[in-house]
Amino acid sequence: MTVFDRALVRRRRDRAVAEFSDHSFLFDEIAERLADRLEDVIRPFPLALDLGCHDGALARALAAPGGAVGREFGGGWRKGIEHLVACDLSPDFARAAFGNGATVLAADEEFLPFAPGSFDLVVSNLSLHWVNDLPGALVQIRQALKPDGFFCAAMLGGDTLVELRRCLYEAEMEVAGGVSPRVSPFAEIKDAGGLLQRAGFALPVVDSDTLTVTYSDAFALMRELRGMGETNAVLARRKVPATRRLLFEAAQRYAQLYAEPDGRIPVTFQVLYLAGWSPHESQQQPLKPGSGQVPLGDALKGGARH
């Protein structure tokens, strides 16, 4: 299924590069959270891939104490990373990430240019929610991992921008008498675990965080999304710009429905975290059906006694 205009996603990322640091708070925050999650995995990852690197926030978050990254810079990365490869759909973002010590290239998440079994670790920070064929991309990621390699990613989930979605929907119904996709669709947490299993990952784990950020008004939020390179790129969107009347109607509804006592509006960002391993014989395996030694009824009775 083709949902997103990937060429438009690339152009909007290219456009966002120049002033991205003014709008990158979410990418910086989630990069730190991903790096912290990797600290819970007790093993090194000599060769790692940062998939959808944007300006290199994840490379900075993974930098070893002291700030320098990469052996050629006299420093290194956490988690035993000796070499980091960073790629992004946007060539301009790939160039922007170069100064973080990684090997960088422009590459599409839907058509990964890496040989099977290349990496010990693949990490992705808020990029995979723009992929059309997410199951296919996950299969390619799993194939790019070495046996017992680790995948860890963050992507926006279905509750993201729920307030803006409602206000644009209601405003367009009022102004135009119909609706069109104004906010991109996002994956639901209940589906994410199944996607990892379908892609062949072992020991899949999915959880989520919800971040609430406040803005002065809906127009400030829209400017932020543009600065992030995260504005609507759905193929079925209306190709003409939204009218001033529609935008003002949506902003007014947002303030009426959600404004806090100080007049600022809350914005929801739901972040899904996906983790899984490339299969290896050393990993824990489920027992075969019928191989249990204790009848279920006896186990439940035992639990009731205690």
Rank of each mutant, 00 (worst) to 15 (best):
T2F: 01
V3R: 13
A7L: 13
R10A: 15
R11E: 15
R11I: 02
D14K: 04
R15D: 15
A16L: 13
V17K: 10
E19M: 08
E19Q: 15
S21Q: 14
D22L: 14
D22H: 14
F25V: 14
A31N: 05
E32Q: 14
R33P: 08
R33A: 13
A35P: 04
E39V: 00
A48D: 00
D50E: 02
L51S: 08
G52M: 03
D55I: 05
G56T: 00
R60S: 09
A61P: 02
A63R: 09
A64P: 06
V69W: 02
G70E: 00
G74M: 03
R78T: 00
E82K: 00
P91Q: 06
G99W: 01
T103F: 07
L105E: 12
A106P: 09
E109W: 02
E110C: 08
L112T: 08
P113G: 11
P116C: 10
N125I: 04
L128T: 12
L128Y: 08
N132C: 12
D133C: 05
V139S: 07
Q140K: 11
A144L: 02
K146M: 05
K146L: 09
D148C: 09
M155S: 09
D159S: 13
V162M: 10
L168A: 09
L168E: 11
A171M: 02
A171C: 03
V175A: 03
A176D: 15
G178D: 11
G178N: 10
R182C: 05
V183K: 07
E188W: 04
K190H: 12
A192G: 07
G194R: 13
G194T: 11
Q197W: 01
R198A: 15
A199Q: 04
T212W: 06
T212Q: 11
T212N: 07
T214P: 06
T214S: 15
D217F: 06
F219G: 03
E224S: 12
R226W: 05
M228T: 14
R238Y: 11
R238W: 09
V240C: 08
L246S: 03
E249Y: 01
L257K: 11
G263H: 03
R264G: 11
V267K: 03
T268H: 10
V271Q: 03
V271T: 12
L274F: 08
S278R: 15
S278P: 05
L287M: 11
L287W: 06
V294Q: 09
V294S: 02
G297M: 03
